[in-house]
Write a protein that binds this DNA or RNA. Structure first.
Lengths: 218, 218
DNA sequence: TGTACATCAGTGAACGCGCGTTCACTGATGTAC
DNA sequence: TGTACATCAGTGAACGCGCGTTCACTGATGTAC
């Protein structure tokens, strides 16, 4: 174990009494960093401890087990994704423009944190997240998207009498596929991200060329 | 090592002289089976050997290392995906119908072999595949799709003067996102796969209600 | 027809590694009296 | 103001496990003479 410390990237100094919680935050941040740089498969309890400069056993002071750490990383990922899209939506007017801005930010986030994004949508959820039940991560983001699509449809942009849940699903999964495909096949002849995002949205919602012109001119 | 054999699911009998290659095929099949049942992260050289009922060292008779096995699994996956879509395209007439049939088969394959599909599109390719260069796996499938989209556009279905490469990209990534999202979030309120596939394609290509009617009536 | 030999298909033991988790512990620091 | 003590933040050693890979080997079988 002493070898673990000697090869540590940095050695941390002990927190003051009462500040024990700061290690928890440091562990999560380190774990997120490890996922982003090496992919979740390379993230072990020992690697996280090493990154923080702490003994492997110290992780158990704040998490039940290694799955607990991964669950925290996933939550953090969704929080930051939500922050990104919300920031992008501010100062934009009109539902269609907001939808475009949010989705573009969504994709940019995924492409800037590809390993984290992959981890957030991996097939088998970490134990604690899976046990949490129906409110799967990202569901709140989808609700936001759904309402926004409803507003776009309500504003008379695109076809009328549309199933907004279906439309929101199509938009979300398109963005999802777009970024995951770009991540896994970076050498493919990709059109610019902006074009792909805009074309996907406009076509799926049935935004006509007229409506496009109107919105753009506004 | 003797323990390895004692816990083997089955013990294989040695191939006849000249039939050594059969072990290679058995290893690939077993590795595909393991990926499908447990995900690629659980697939180790030793697990594959165990599955076949052979000593771990025997794998080196046919593969350079564990990455070689994974590369073979990936190739096999794309072969089977291509077989599925090709089969679905036979006996279908009209480019739009063929496109729909192919894409539906694509999605069905992914949903029937979710772990394998995830592995086929994972971020970091196995060493041998990555070294192979430009012709990334699945590129031939995309070429088929691209030509098909060109035929659809050429037949006057949807808008005219379209960028077929862009359209094919949008269709592919939409299907990709659809299946990956369904795999990673099985409890989401999904519309039927058939609906999602058809709506995606028709909307992206700009198939009008009139054209739909015409094609469906035919 | 008999036999020596090369080849083929695969084995067995061993290696060092990083892993998750357990258990008993240590030493600084704030607090009650 | 001094001191005993509880609490807090974290450590160190050890465990058993499965892993990829190496090396020297074995035993059956086909073939050349």
């Amino acid at each position: 174990m002493s070898e673990d410390r000697s090869t540590a990237t940095r050695v941390r100094e002990r927190n003051r009494r009462g500040d024990g919680r700061r290690l928890q935050e440091d562990l999560v941040v380190a774990a997120v960093r490890l996922v982003e740089s090496h992919g979740h498969a390379q993230v072990s309890l020992r690697a996280v401890a090493r990154e923080v400069g702490v003994a492997p056993t110290s992780v158990y002071l704040h998490f039940d087990d290694v799955e607990g750490v991964l669950a925290a990383v996933m939550s953090r990922g969704f929080e930051e994704l939500a922050r990104s899209t919300t920031r992008a939506a501010s100062g934009v007017d009109g539902p269609l423009e907001e939808l475009r801005a949010r989705m573009f930010a969504y994709c940019r986030f995924a492409l800037e944190h590809p390993r984290l994004y992959e981890f957030m949508f991996r097939g088998d959820l970490p134990g604690p997240v899976a046990r949490e039940g129906v409110d799967t991560p990202g569901l709140r983001s989808f609700a936001t998207l759904h309402t926004l699509v409803e507003r776009v449809v309500g504003a008379g942009i695109g076809r009328s009498h549309e199933d907004s849940h279906l439309l929101a699903t199509l938009v979300w999964t398109s963005m999802h596929g777009l970024v995951l495909a770009r991540i896994s096949r970076p050498t493919f002849a990709w059109a610019p991200l902006e074009v792909l995002v805009r074309e996907s949205i406009d076509r799926l919602l049935g935004v006509t060329l007229d409506a496009k012109g109107a919105v753009n001119a506004k």
